[in-house]
Design a binder for these strands. Structure first.
Length: 483
DNA sequence: TGAAATGTTGGGGCG
DNA sequence: ACGCCCCAACATTTC
């Protein structure tokens, strides 16, 4: 019986720029492609509802792409140790390939797997499939990990520019399956799509997961939307963000492909300012930094990075949390953001900062409550980005926003949604208010409110907290942990 | 990847 | 013409 190579897909659901896949092809023998729904992942890290929706479609795309090239994607569910061992035995696998992950659970289980398989005489190799720079590739002069974004990124940039990244287009044909191949589960068997109720129709209209769409989105961004990125990315009613986050999260496109295409396009496009390009590249930098932090601080998803925050007087207010989750805080920009999230599994970055700041600083609710809501509702929910960003907003993180930096939800709204287009789209009950009124309906005269069909506390809430008092409370709370 | 509070400046109204 | 006040407009400091 001939030997077989195995490629274990995880957050690398693509065929282009795929080091593990290319390594298996180089073996010139049958190949098994497998995706395992890992049931050993800790609860707080198992995929949320929105992620599952995305994963279902992404796997379907990948399976179709593999099938059209003459092979199949094997789907399984369980403990990867068992599943992989079964596949190894059944198909005479002698070589195993995967891409690395950077969370503590998978680092530990990957190491164990590698050791176990190597001791049994198999060839095992893991690759970088999802970062521009892996965490151990960059340290400060004293040998410690960076704690602050700016020096991290300043020093990462020259390294990144020198790396020869793995660029290899998807093969047109894949090697054959072993003769005794038998699929275990179908993607449907994983039950990743919601039912009773089916809440994802907004997702269906908004997103097309998969590698092909990832490349299309990249092209659209680099050809049109990156212009004036520095300014326009902050306006949630516009489409001047890359919107690549879910594709990057699931590895439907390699970050270095995004990076290098961006460099290429900017070299060919004099009208694209260095400033706009750099601001976009910085965002990729934050993604790198989050993974870097997670690697060196495995407890980032659960524990305050700065332990002074362990004694922070968070409130216990389930009702307020629910208002926030449902987009019923009475602050139109906050509510628009939360409803956008609920409907399409994604929120504009500027608004993410505003709603997160609101939860933590106006409502004084623990950032972990916000992180877990985002984890469940975002199609780009990523353990590194989500944890690092929430800690950044809360002020408990590395290189965090200072605690006293409190967004005024009305000013942010006036600044970044000046004509109220974003609010009108997601909070239609306010659609008849004009551009002056819409940011703070409670300040509008009763007569005018009535004309616009807005009845406070009937069809739209009045603010659940007063901005000024909430702000002072937050500053008080901060003082308590500062000493 | 703030916003509020406080300080400074300078033009204009006015006695 | 002058001093005084008011208050934008902008700058700086503080949270």
């Amino acid at each position: 019986m001939p030997t077989t190579s195995l490629v274990w897909f995880r957050q690398d659901l693509r065929l282009n720029d795929h080091p593990a896949l290319q390594a298996a092809l180089a073996d010139n023998q049958p190949v098994i492609f497998i995706y395992i729904h890992d049931t050993t992942i800790p609860t707080h890290q198992t995929w949320g509802g929105a992620s599952r929706w995305w994963l279902h479609h992404s796997l379907s795309q990948l399976a179709a792409d593999i099938k059209s090239r003459g092979n199949e994607l094997l789907i399984a569910s369980g403990d990867p140790r068992d599943i992989l061992q079964q596949a190894i035995t059944r198909y005479q696998v002698n070589k195993i390939y995967w891409h690395r992950c950077y969370d503590v659970h998978r680092i530990a289980s990957d190491m164990q797997l590698k050791k176990q398989f190597q001791q049994s005489g198999y060839y095992v190799e893991s690759f970088n499939g999802s970062l521009l720079i892996e965490p151990w590739e960059i340290k400060t002069k004293s040998g410690d990990p960076y704690q602050v974004f700016t020096p991290f990124w300043r020093n990462a940039l020259p390294i990144i520019k020198n790396i020869k990244y793995f660029m290899q287009k998807a093969p047109t044909r894949l090697p054959p399956l072993p003769d005794n191949f038998k699929s275990l589960l179908s993607i449907d068997d994983l039950s990743f799509l919601p039912k009773n109720p089916y809440w994802a129709s907004g997702f269906d209209h908004r997103w097309q997961p998969g590698e092909k769409q990832a490349w299309q989105q990249l092209n659209l961004f680099l050809e049109e939307n990156i212009f004036e990125y520095k300014i326009k990315r902050d306006y949630p009613a516009l489409s001047h963000t890359s919107q690549l986050s879910p594709y990057l999260h699931w590895g439907e496109i390699a970050p270095w492909r995004v990076w290098l295409r961006c460099e290429e396009v900017s070299a060919l496009t004099p009208s694209l300012s260095i400033n706009d390009r750099m601001h976009f590249q910085n965002e990729l930098g934050w993604r790198e930094f989050s993974h870097y932090l997670l690697y060196y601080h495995p407890q980032l998803p659960e524990k305050n990075f700065r332990s002074a925050f362990d004694s922070f007087p968070w409130k216990d207010d389930a009702a307020a949390l629910q208002c926030w989750q449902e987009g019923k805080t009475g602050y139109p920009l906050v509510d628009a953001g939360m409803r956008q999230l609920w409907h399409i599994g994604w929120m504009h970055n500027r608004v993410r900062m505003v709603v997160a700041s609101f939860l933590v600083k106006h409502l004084l609710l623990d950032w972990r409550l916000g992180a877990s809501w985002f984890w469940d509702t975002l199609v780009d929910a990523d353990i590194a980005n989500n944890s690092a960003s929430w800690q950044w907003v809360a002020g408990s993180g590395a290189d965090a926003a200072p605690y006293f930096r409190i967004f005024n939800p009305v000013l942010q709204s006036e600044k970044f949604d000046p004509d109220g287009a974003y609010i009108k789209h997601w909070v239609p009950e306010l659609a008849c208010l004009n551009a002056k009124q819409i940011h703070a309906p409670w300040r509008v005269d009763n007569e005018l409110l009535k004309e616009a069909g807005v009845q406070l506390n009937k069809n739209y809430p009045s603010p659940i907290v007063n901005h000024e008092t909430a702000r002072h409370q937050a500053l008080e709370a901060y003082k308590r942990i500062a000493k």
